[in-house]
């Protein structure tokens, strides 16, 4: 943990910077192409300032977009879907709040994004780790920012998320829903991209010494859901999330008292108070693997427990192998 203070950010910068700028810049429904509307705007108004770059115009547009956004919000004129997913809020606010964490803090490297289909439903199955479910949020940003179609990932979250005030509200608005077969199937059949972390609390709350060892994949319910909805399964391996809060102990009594599945003790956490909640700035890699097609299976396959266990194992093995491969390639935890 001693090398935690040395954080060479610079390596990733030059490569990542330029494409990101383009995507963040347009605020509301404005077109992405920057230079085109600039000239006529500038000639209409301040001629002198508009010389070198379209800076003032850009800001005006940002402010106008922001105000339009504000207007829609405070008059309630926006749409949410049946699950409470607020696309506009997610795109404009929640994503931009997570993006610095994704780009600057964890410097997430995304590989194999082409394995996610351009359209239609798909189930992304990922490993789960890190004491707090930051990996899920980063996965959501990864899919949205790196996929050419800017697809939105709909995560399936534990029931604890929906029991907590404020958290449940934000989760619903960000497009997450309860991890149950009904919701997952409904989303998949609607052609959405659904993310699931079948390890659940066993994965996210495992001690640090068991890092990158995949836990049991629930009861394989995700496989039968994908089979029923006839959508491909995309295995996904996330490296880096295990070390953000190295959980060296678990205060079980306290956890039971608070009604949570585990109460983490990290080298910093209860000792430094809120400061201990700052995650370690590890370097992350998110690798999407080859999709596993469910097209070829007959309709009754979802009821076949043997096939389900086999498929579950196949997905689990693939994620585990990719994890090992990525770990071998990794030079250091922090860069």
């Amino acid at each position: 943990m001693a090398d935690a203070k040395v954080i060479p950010f610079d390596e990733e910068r030059p490569r990542r910077r330029s494409p990101r700028r383009v995507r963040v810049a347009p605020p509301a429904g404005e077109p992405v192409v920057q230079p085109v509307p600039e000239p006529d705007r500038e000639t209409g108004g301040t001629a002198g300032a508009g010389g070198p770059v379209g800076r003032p115009g850009d800001w005006d547009r940002r402010i106008a977009g922001g105000l339009a956004f504000l207007r829609r919000r405070i008059t309630g004129e926006y749409e949410v879907d049946d699950f409470g997913y607020d696309k506009e809020l997610t795109d404009q606010v929640l994503m931009s709040m997570m993006r610095p964490l994704f780009d600057k803090y964890f410097r997430v490297e995304v590989k194999g994004i082409e394995n996610i289909p351009k359209e239609g439903g798909a189930l992304i199955v990922a490993n789960h780790s890190g004491t707090l479910p930051l990996d899920g949020l980063m996965l959501q940003v990864a899919v949205h920012d790196h996929h050419p179609a800017e697809r939105h990932l709909r995560l399936l979250a534990a029931d604890l998320v929906f029991m907590l005030p404020v958290v449940n509200e934000l989760a619903r608005k960000a497009g997450h829903t309860l991890a149950c077969a009904e919701d997952a199937q409904r989303l998949l059949e609607a052609g959405e991209l659904v993310g699931v972390m079948p390890e659940g609390f066993k994965g996210i709350g495992k001690p640090f010494r068991e890092r990158y060892k995949l836990q049991r994949f629930g009861r394989g319910g995700f496989v039968s859901t994908a089979l029923r909805a006839r959508t491909p399964i995309v295995p996904c391996s996330i490296v880096g999330a295990e070390e953000i809060y190295p959980m060296v102990g678990n205060a079980k009594t306290l956890a039971r008292l608070l009604g949570v599945p585990y109460f983490p003790v990290t080298p910093t956490f209860p000792w430094l108070g809120p400061l201990g909640m700052v995650p370690l700035p590890t370097k992350w890699t998110i690798q999407f693997g080859e999709p596993i097609s469910t097209e070829g299976f007959p309709a009754e396959a979802a009821e076949d427990p043997m096939l389900m266990f086999n498929l579950t194992d196949q997905v689990r093995e693939q994620i585990q192998h990719t994890l090992y491969r990525l770990l071998v390639q990794r030079r250091s935890v922090f860069f």
């Binding site: 429904g29 005006d60 547009r61 402010i63 105000l67 405070i74």
Partner: peptide, 28 residues
């Protein structure tokens, strides 16, 4: 009324930043 208030703020900001009235209203 709340919507109009925002519009007014937009109008004021436009006056300050000068010259991009159509842009702001277009975005509205």
């Amino acid at each position: 009324r709340v919507g109009r208030a925002v519009d007014r703020v937009a109008g004021m900001l436009n006056a300050d930043l000068s010259g991009v009235g159509p842009a702001a209203e277009g975005a509205e």
